[in-house]
Write a protein that binds this DNA or RNA. Structure first.
Lengths: 170, 170
DNA sequence: TACGGTTGTTAGAGCAATCTAACACCTTGT
DNA sequence: ACAAGGTGTTAGATTGCTCTAACAACCGTA
């Protein structure tokens, strides 16, 4: 076991999310598309679908499409919300590039407790509102990434050599 | 497979970290203390130690204590650094309570890529330096958690009923 | 030095999640 | 209507990690 949401393992939560995303994208999910989306072979999908079906989150009759039950859709929404929040934290605040953020968000969505997730969501909207321009924020943090900042305030000393992060913005 | 650090599985990374913590705490690690620290039975520890030993990260002769090799110690330091960073983010910025933060940090340390981790560390020191008083920052975010903030700036409207997070500060 | 209790190890089972190989079913073009 | 190719399923193996039950080694005390 198990992610902080309790109920499902990380793996099954990922399958559920992928099913929701596929439904969003092309109105249905099949074993093949799901297998491609999840990067696993079909028998693995079959196994997962059976599990999700046993848990009452998905319906699937032999050779048919895969559909979310109300409960499954609800749970999938939860997971997607987490995912989006983490993505926007990684790209919007930490300024991580989109592909890396996507991968990391996928892993993090199973790591955070309900409480921390809640706080993170609040924090994101807090920062967004404190820097409504966004570009200001990006500039400030990027300058910090490149040049560091002195003890006295937000604006970095552009002549100081100390760099807390060698990479800067990709 | 595998955490973003590559090399080890999440589980083995956790064991390695626990060994380092035990060495820190009481100068050595044994199967029993490790088993208690990790919350697993002794045969599981034995299995893990064998794996870590095979990987050259730990030395362990029959019925003896468990010691980190140089390589193991180095890797453990890495993991501990991640852990501490995540902990300080959760408690110091998101204001999550210590126990929850401890659990979440343990899970997150396997989820973040090297790049994101790096950014997060920079971000933490950035925020710390931007709010050198700390208490200011705590106040501001806590007020936001309780009362919300309006679109115009940092200071919340204390009379507005809108609350983005019901819990407030424990 | 022998005994009892703690500590460590071994053997073997079990579960989650994945795979390959082989098979069953469906659909579509000719 | 039937062969072909794609799609879905089954069987069975494998890996990582955990457990219980039983056994072996170590150590303090009498």
């Amino acid at each position: 076991m198990s992610s902080p949401s309790g109920r499902l393992t990380k793996s099954l939560e990922d399958y559920l999310e992928a099913i929701a995303v596929l439904h969003e994208r092309d109105g249905k999910a099949t074993v093949t598309t799901l297998s491609e989306a999840a990067g696993v072979k079909k028998p693995s999908v079959d196994w997962a679908v059976r599990k999700l079906s046993d848990a009452g989150l998905v319906t699937h009759e032999r050779y048919g499409d895969i559909h979310l039950t109300d409960e499954g859709a609800h749970l999938a929404d939860e997971v997607c919300r987490r995912h989006k929040a983490l993505l926007s934290f990684l790209t919007g605040i930490l300024m991580v590039d989109t592909e890396t953020a996507e991968v990391d968000a996928c892993r993090m969505e199973h790591a955070l407790s309900r409480e921390s997730m809640h706080r993170l969501e609040s924090y994101i909207s807090f920062v967004m509102k404190c820097y409504p321009g966004r570009s200001d924020w990006e500039d400030i943090f990027n300058r910090y990434l490149q040049y560091g900042v002195d003890q006295r305030g937000i604006l970095p000393d552009l002549d100081s050599g100390a760099s807390p992060d060698g990479e800067g913005r990709e």
